[in-house]
Write a protein that binds this DNA or RNA. Structure first.
Lengths: 195, 195, 195, 195
DNA sequence: CATGAATGAGTCTTCATTCAT
DNA sequence: TATGAATGAAGACTCATTCAT
């Protein structure tokens, strides 16, 4: 079961696509199998259960995401540069793992309460800490406005970035870096013309 | 089937709450019935099907939302005032119908392709038109920055507002108007300090 | 779900019959349903699972059995009279709950290791204690032969009685009391003619 | 398919062990393969099917058993000596083929109705005939008590012996001959002290 | 209006078996 | 001989829905 990780990865990618499209619960194992070109039962040669597929998709995604976040956080950048780097990495991750990100967005809330998916909640708090710290640092250094509610701002930035996974299509008009740039411009400078 | 509209509305409110919490597909009729204090079969005295409950919830919500949007759009305000009014009305709607908004956010994408829910797609395009028009008007009049991609900006503003339904709890620290004000401040002026 | 215990008991009796006939694992829910005259899915209105049917069958049987055993053990009889009463009660129980006894014989060994069926193991030790005590008392008072291995004798008597459930048919030629009498005669006096 | 009879016998012994432990139906081919150290599919190089393994196990066991029984029956012993010899051979067989005996005990009843396993039923009647004849001979010659139901006595003796396979462990405290001796002592002389 | 009971289609999962390599 | 991958039939269980009372 470990000889050909290629087949495994292939099946997981297919499953992720279908999960992202229809939602985890609404997706039947048969639909995944159809999309992958085998019979429903055959999936169980590769995976223990539908849930374990979801698990592997999310864990892989979060593992990769955190590797990149950690690199950013360890770089010792100022708050504004940190925010820019985090947002850019996020859009890159959406570009690489669009399906996984979409699944994460849609399902993580109710999954996080299950023991098996406890790491979703862990991730969420690390996430929160990283962002809040960055924002607070920015307020302290005068990079960010002090008259805004930091928690509200955190939610604003967080959602703003990740919801993009619901409409983003890799290979479209904009590169992830380009989208990141425009989002950052809006988030940092606002959309109103400065008088 | 229309004896007590009060009871009907009560049941719909309960159903909406459960749908919002767990997702439409993941919610069983029995769970709705449990939450409402009757047996699953008894719901069918009031409603034709689980789907018709969803339908009624969404149609009611969109009806009310558009009544308010139309009022705003008909008021002849400038683009920035229009944007502010639309955002404020949106947060008010989240305050009033949080469950319905959350359901709409989570389920409308795949529902819209079904004939019965075609109005979701109609609503989506009216939505898009109203926002794009407003943004373009703003760019033309110099209220909004001209260097931003209008479609990207539209998605940014749209998502930014509605995702709030996933974490907003009525009766919390902030009134909807307060949240709208802060969101607008971030969207319009940005979170960076202006030099 | 508690209004009509009659239906419940009826279904359980049917299930017990099929379990006893074919073995628990080899029995499909559909077979139980067929025997009961409804569809497989309908059983789940009355019971949580196939396993919970088995659980209820066994727990009910053991509950009743122990009520009778306790009465015997509390009666303060001598060891030989105790042994006779326990054997007689056992055959009566086979007469009343043949199916449950047959299931218990066939399945309890591997069920006992599951937490849910832990009471099977508890029952087994109480059983063992009751019999060993009785046999040891009998050896001490000179009622039973002292030259036999008590544990072997225990197994001999225990098995001797309960295996009868595999061939006993209620309403046959012999009443349970008559069978008990003959078994006791063989166990106590032997089948060889006394010289 | 008959390359190495040693490997074949090895695999059958493993299979018998697992069947005895978990029951034939509850045992998966994969479990047998795991226990034997190969993959499930590989078993099909050696055997046609799971059923054919069971078949070979039971047929081998019964073949050996009947060879010994025939020797006893052909020896022209008196009824009591015949009974003693049959019981002793039975315990020896339990010692040699515990797993096969346990399987036979648990599964033969429902297997016997299948054409493939018709020999189980044949064996059962030969068994019955041998025992009944011996018992009747014993009653006629005054070796066994005449006041007992012969069929009941037959079942008593039969069950008494074979159930031992469910708890007997080869290499334990007692040799099969020792257990046979004690069982015979109980069956023939009874467990009560003779006055 | 509500209940208790049932239906039947569909879902996830298991497993004996096959077969190219 | 053995493996890796798949098949396909069947099994336990779920759930929206119906309906007599």
């Amino acid at each position: 079961m470990r000889q050909t990780p290629a087949r495994r990865a292939e099946l997981l990618a297919t499953a992720a696509e279908v999960f992202a499209e229809q939602g985890y619960n609404a997706t039947t194992v048969r639909e995944i199998a159809d999309a992958a070109g085998l019979l429903a039962g055959s999936l169980y040669y590769h995976f223990d259960s539908k849930e374990s597929m979801l698990d592997e998709i999310l864990a892989t995604f979060l593992g990769e995401l955190w590797a990149r976040y950690e690199a950013v956080l360890a770089a010792g950048l100022g708050p504004r540069a940190t925010l820019e780097a985090l947002v850019t990495e996020s859009f890159r991750e959406i570009d690489r793992h669009r399906a996984a990100v979409a699944i994460y967005q849609k399902e993580s809330k109710y999954l996080a309460v299950q023991p098996r998916f406890g790491y979703l909640d862990d991730s969420r708090s690390r996430f929160e800490t990283a962002w809040l710290t960055t924002l607070e640092r920015g307020v302290a250094t005068g990079a960010f406005r002090a008259d805004l509610d930091v928690r509200l701002t955190y939610r604003f930035v967080r959602d703003t970035v990740w919801v993009a996974a619901s409409w983003y299509r890799p290979g479209g008009r904009h590169s992830p870096e380009e989208i990141a740039r425009q989002y950052l411009s809006m988030v940092l400078e606002g959309i109103a013309v400065r008088e």
